[in-house]
Lab assay of single mutants.
Amino acid sequence: NNDALSPAIRRLLAEHNLDASAIKGTGVGGRLTREDVEKHLAKA
């Protein structure tokens, strides 16, 4: 659900052409954090 993404996370996802649903969020309520996105990028 993109409504739960902060603007910074949306921008980071867009810059790397990532789909938020492909990344498991570890923030409050399962929200994506910058660390989640960076860890996903490091794996790729």
Rank of each mutant, 00 (worst) to 15 (best):
residue 2 N to C: 06
residue 23 I to F: 03
residue 10 R to K: 10
residue 1 N to T: 14
residue 34 R to D: 08
residue 18 L to V: 09
residue 27 G to A: 04
residue 34 R to T: 09
residue 44 A to H: 14
residue 18 L to D: 01
residue 13 L to K: 00
residue 20 A to P: 14
residue 18 L to W: 02
residue 42 A to N: 11
residue 25 G to W: 02
residue 11 R to H: 13
residue 42 A to I: 11
residue 33 T to Y: 01
residue 13 L to G: 00
residue 17 N to D: 09
residue 18 L to I: 15
residue 2 N to W: 02
residue 7 P to K: 09
residue 1 N to K: 11
residue 13 L to Y: 02
residue 15 E to W: 15
residue 20 A to Y: 07
residue 6 S to W: 08
residue 27 G to P: 01
residue 8 A to T: 11
residue 16 H to P: 00
residue 16 H to F: 07
residue 28 V to A: 12
residue 6 S to L: 07
residue 34 R to E: 12
residue 25 G to D: 01
residue 29 G to A: 10
residue 19 D to L: 13
residue 27 G to S: 03
residue 30 G to F: 01
residue 3 D to T: 09
residue 4 A to T: 13
residue 26 T to E: 02
residue 42 A to C: 06
residue 33 T to W: 01
residue 44 A to L: 15
residue 7 P to L: 13
residue 11 R to Q: 14
residue 26 T to S: 11
residue 2 N to Q: 13
residue 7 P to R: 10
residue 17 N to F: 07
residue 4 A to K: 11
residue 1 N to A: 12
residue 1 N to L: 11
residue 5 L to K: 03
residue 18 L to H: 02
residue 29 G to K: 07
residue 3 D to H: 11
residue 5 L to V: 11
residue 6 S to M: 06
residue 19 D to W: 05
residue 26 T to P: 02
residue 17 N to Y: 06
residue 18 L to G: 01
residue 10 R to D: 06
residue 36 D to S: 01
residue 35 E to P: 06
residue 18 L to F: 04
residue 32 L to Q: 01
residue 4 A to L: 12
residue 39 K to P: 04
residue 26 T to M: 04
residue 11 R to M: 07
residue 42 A to T: 09
residue 23 I to A: 01
residue 42 A to G: 09
residue 13 L to I: 06
residue 32 L to I: 15
residue 36 D to G: 00
residue 34 R to M: 15
residue 14 A to W: 14
residue 29 G to F: 06
residue 33 T to S: 05
residue 16 H to S: 04
residue 23 I to W: 04
residue 25 G to Q: 03
residue 42 A to H: 09
residue 10 R to V: 13
residue 26 T to V: 03
residue 3 D to I: 08
residue 24 K to D: 06
residue 21 S to P: 03
residue 13 L to M: 05
residue 13 L to F: 05
residue 5 L to H: 06
residue 41 L to H: 05
residue 24 K to P: 08
residue 2 N to L: 13
residue 33 T to V: 05
residue 27 G to C: 01
residue 6 S to H: 08
residue 1 N to F: 04
residue 36 D to E: 02
residue 6 S to E: 12
residue 24 K to E: 10
residue 3 D to F: 02
residue 44 A to F: 15
residue 27 G to L: 03
residue 36 D to K: 00
residue 34 R to Y: 15
residue 1 N to Y: 03
residue 10 R to H: 05
residue 35 E to S: 12
residue 13 L to Q: 00
residue 2 N to P: 13
residue 12 L to A: 06
residue 15 E to D: 09
residue 4 A to F: 15
residue 26 T to D: 02
residue 22 A to G: 08
residue 36 D to F: 01
residue 5 L to E: 06
residue 7 P to T: 07
residue 38 E to A: 09
residue 27 G to I: 02
residue 7 P to I: 09
residue 24 K to G: 06
residue 4 A to H: 14
residue 36 D to V: 01
residue 32 L to G: 00
residue 21 S to F: 08
residue 6 S to N: 07
residue 5 L to P: 05
residue 32 L to M: 06
residue 17 N to L: 06
residue 14 A to K: 13
residue 37 V to M: 03
residue 6 S to V: 05
residue 9 I to L: 14
residue 18 L to Q: 03
residue 38 E to C: 08
residue 43 K to A: 14
residue 35 E to I: 09
residue 41 L to M: 07
residue 36 D to N: 03
residue 10 R to G: 05
residue 38 E to I: 15
residue 4 A to Y: 15
residue 31 R to N: 07
residue 30 G to P: 01
residue 18 L to Y: 03
residue 13 L to V: 03
residue 10 R to E: 10
residue 41 L to T: 03
residue 41 L to K: 01
residue 2 N to I: 14
residue 1 N to P: 12
residue 12 L to C: 05
residue 32 L to K: 01
residue 17 N to W: 05
residue 35 E to D: 10
residue 22 A to I: 10
residue 26 T to R: 03
residue 13 L to E: 00
residue 3 D to V: 07
residue 33 T to I: 05
residue 28 V to Y: 08
residue 7 P to W: 05
residue 21 S to R: 11
residue 8 A to S: 12
residue 35 E to W: 14
residue 26 T to Q: 03
residue 32 L to T: 03
residue 44 A to D: 10
residue 6 S to C: 05
residue 30 G to H: 03
residue 38 E to R: 11
residue 2 N to V: 14
residue 14 A to I: 08
residue 16 H to L: 07
residue 41 L to F: 06
residue 28 V to Q: 12
residue 17 N to P: 01
residue 21 S to K: 10
residue 7 P to Q: 12
residue 37 V to P: 00
residue 21 S to V: 07
residue 35 E to N: 09
residue 7 P to V: 08
residue 6 S to Y: 05
residue 29 G to H: 08
residue 33 T to M: 06
residue 17 N to K: 10
residue 43 K to R: 12
residue 39 K to N: 13
residue 23 I to E: 00
residue 37 V to G: 00
residue 20 A to T: 06
residue 28 V to E: 14
residue 25 G to T: 05
residue 37 V to Q: 00
residue 1 N to H: 12
residue 30 G to D: 04
residue 8 A to M: 11
residue 35 E to R: 14
residue 2 N to D: 14
residue 28 V to H: 10
residue 19 D to I: 10
residue 41 L to P: 00
residue 30 G to Q: 05
residue 12 L to I: 10
residue 5 L to Y: 04
residue 25 G to L: 03
residue 13 L to H: 00
residue 8 A to E: 15
residue 44 A to G: 11
residue 14 A to E: 15
residue 43 K to W: 12
residue 7 P to E: 15
residue 21 S to C: 05
residue 37 V to Y: 02
residue 24 K to N: 09
residue 8 A to H: 11
residue 20 A to R: 06
residue 14 A to P: 00
residue 23 I to T: 01
residue 16 H to A: 05
residue 9 I to P: 00
residue 10 R to W: 06
residue 41 L to G: 01
residue 20 A to G: 07
residue 19 D to H: 09
residue 39 K to M: 12
residue 6 S to Q: 06
residue 25 G to V: 04
residue 1 N to Q: 14
residue 8 A to G: 08
residue 32 L to H: 01
residue 23 I to R: 00
residue 10 R to P: 01
residue 30 G to Y: 01
residue 44 A to Q: 14
residue 9 I to A: 04
residue 19 D to F: 05
residue 12 L to P: 01
residue 35 E to Y: 13
residue 4 A to C: 07
residue 39 K to V: 09
residue 6 S to T: 14
residue 4 A to N: 14
residue 3 D to Y: 02
residue 33 T to R: 09
residue 21 S to I: 07
residue 44 A to C: 07
residue 24 K to Y: 06
residue 39 K to H: 11
residue 8 A to F: 10
residue 27 G to Y: 01
residue 27 G to Q: 02
residue 43 K to Y: 13
residue 39 K to T: 10
residue 30 G to T: 03
residue 18 L to T: 05
residue 1 N to D: 14
residue 5 L to D: 05
